[in-house]
Nucleic acid binder design. Structure first.
Lengths: 155, 155
DNA sequence: CCAGCGGCGTTAGCGCCACTAACGATCCGT
DNA sequence: ACGGATCGTTAGTGGCGCTAACGCCGCTGG
């Protein structure tokens, strides 16, 4: 299955290519995404399921538009995510009595348990991903990436 | 055009989500990719064009299969890339006399000039991306990411 | 009061990217 | 001489970020 035998950054990469931070970051992000989504798929879940459940559990019930803003899952894609979560009984989708355009999304008790499960799965993933780094290095990597991210977020 | 107004990692992200290195890395990689591909599109180029030209210039002529291994551009996608590069006169695609299955791809003088151009564009991109970091921090970020990358590359 | 603007959820679809499948042509080992 | 592997090529898949359009509803102003 794993054709990822050698996704290593260098190997035979030209020197000019090795200097591109975007390439190294992109490759590593791809590796991480594979690991995370495989782990989530192992329990029948998806990245967005986790983010949505986490937002609902931490910030409380919300309309779909609010949820979209909080999670950066597009409104159009959120529909399917909520369909799945609702079908599994992890969230409840009820019409908002105060505004008939909206739905109020609420996490159920089963949803909180599911979130705990996904959280545990992802903690394992995180641990695996950052295995070669010690605590200081992990914090450093987070901080450096966050600074670049914040910088790029301002046009 | 830019709907990227706020791609910032946190903002309202749930705590659990902020701890996911894969998410931060993925978001930042996406930002970087946009910047780089926009810059390359500005001169009518593509990421793969750069990688392929760099490989040819630094490691010499190669068959398409070899090129695919060196650049990690899939053989199937390489076809279109080489069509474009050849049409622009940046590479030459000639049948290999020693093996009629193969083509020998060679970079032309125009191709070397094109590579220099793309290299300059990407140096600007790199500089922009890493603007908030000093030299030590850039090196640190590279090293940390490379270690994670290498670790994940070994199943 | 009612007309129009704008936000709501939903459906459909686009474009990019990593990746796979299949195929005819050619080479190579036995 | 034959079978299997490798070459370039075409087509297609699936995920992900993102846009477009639509019917429904609320809100405001003339």
């Amino acid at each position: 299955m794993e054709s990822d035998a050698d996704l290593r950054f260098d190997h035979d990469s030209p020197e000019r290519v090795k200097r591109q931070l975007s390439r190294l970051t992109g490759m590593t992000a791809g590796q991480m995404r594979k690991v995370a989504s495989a782990a989530l798929a192992g329990v029948g879940a998806h990245k967005d399921h986790f983010v949505v459940l986490a937002s609902l559990a931490e910030t409380g019930p919300a309309s779909q538009a609010q949820l979209s803003d909080r999670t950066r899952v597009y409104r159009s894609d959120l529909v399917a995510v909520l369909n799945e979560l609702a079908a599994a009984g992890f969230v409840q989708r009820a019409p908002d009595p105060e505004d008939k355009r909206r739905n109020v999304i609420t996490v159920t008790e089963a949803g909180r348990e599911r979130l705990a499960e996904l959280d545990a799965v992802l903690e394992g993933v995180n641990e695996h991903i950052m295995a070669p780094l010690d605590e200081d290095e992990r914090a450093m990597l987070f901080r450096l990436l966050a600074r670049v991210n914040a910088h790029l977020a301002d046009g």
